[in-house]
């Protein structure tokens, strides 16, 4: 398979950031109250991810290893600010609905995970496609969860009524508790059907430098960043052999 196409498939299916790697749980839980929010959040994250991946990949040979975290933070935060200002200017409704979760893309571990694990070691072209794949994977996941919650919780889909009039919406699903419940059911289903997911340990922890398991994350990555980074080359090889 073409290696650029492979990055897209990888992001959408094999290492889907939400369903398989369980990354970026905060925005996933917070904004999936409707399918439209999922589109807004997903695409904003995709743009930030693509831009940061390309910039870091282009500059990867000039960034001293010891100061790379502050460097990544500044690049990602600048991209987020650009996206935030664009949203405010052209789609104020979306910007209003997503609120502080747009600036919080800075601390989304999908971005840092990809920049650190992939863009800092690969060419600009590959990093670009990795960003597109991961971003689309995240967007599709958010739309799916958002649609599920919106259809059952409000009886609408993209603000169009789809359920019959007699349907009594389960309004809890669009409230905060519903977010936890939907994710609980999703991961229970993955366990039951033995689907690959970071929550049942069936995904190799090596796929991302941060381990990719938000559920058991104790943030060690930031403390032991250096060791992880030096082991990375072998991991990339073994991850590539999977298919």
């Amino acid at each position: 398979m073409n290696k650029y196409l492979e990055r897209l498939v990888n992001g959408l299916f094999k290492e889907n950031p939400t369903f398989v790697l369980m990354l970026g749980m905060c925005p996933t839980l917070a904004i999936t109250t409707s399918a439209m929010n999922g589109v807004g959040m997903g695409l904003s994250t995709t743009v930030v991810l693509i831009a940061s991946n390309v910039i870091i990949a282009a500059l990867r040979k000039f960034i001293p290893n010891t100061v790379r975290m502050p460097y990544f933070i500044v690049v990602v935060a600048s991209m987020v600010t650009i996206v935030q200002l664009l949203l405010q200017a052209y789609v104020p409704d979306v910007s209003e609905a997503l609120g502080i979760y747009i600036p919080l893309i800075v601390v989304n571990c999908i971005i840092f995970g990809r920049v650190e694990a992939y863009a800092a070691k690969h060419s600009v072209g590959l990093s670009l496609f990795d960003g597109i794949g991961m971003g689309l994977g995240f967007t599709v996941a958010l739309i799916l969860i958002g649609s599920f919650r919106e259809i059952l919780g409000a009886g609408t889909w993209f603000n169009i009524r789809v359920m019959p009039e007699s349907y009594e919406p389960i309004s809890m699903l669009v409230q905060p508790p519903g977010a936890f419940l939907v994710l609980a059911m999703l991961t229970a289903l993955q366990n039951k059907l033995k689907l690959p997911s970071a929550t049942n340990g069936s995904v190799k922890k090596t796929a991302l430098s941060c381990g990719g398991d938000c559920a058991n994350c104790k943030g060690e990555v930031f403390a032991m960043n250096h060791e992880l980074n030096t082991k990375e080359p072998q991991k990339e090889k073994s991850a590539g052999k999977e298919d």
Binding site: Q175, P177, F180, L181, M185, N191, T199, A215
Partner: peptide, 22 residues
């Protein structure tokens, strides 16, 4: 139950807590 062990049951607990805080 086996399928709920670990992550799912923790999230279900969080659901109930979120309802209480609601």
């Amino acid at each position: 139950p086996k399928a709920l062990k670990g992550f799912p049951i923790t999230l279900i607990t969080a659901t109930l807590m979120a309802m209480a805080f609601y």
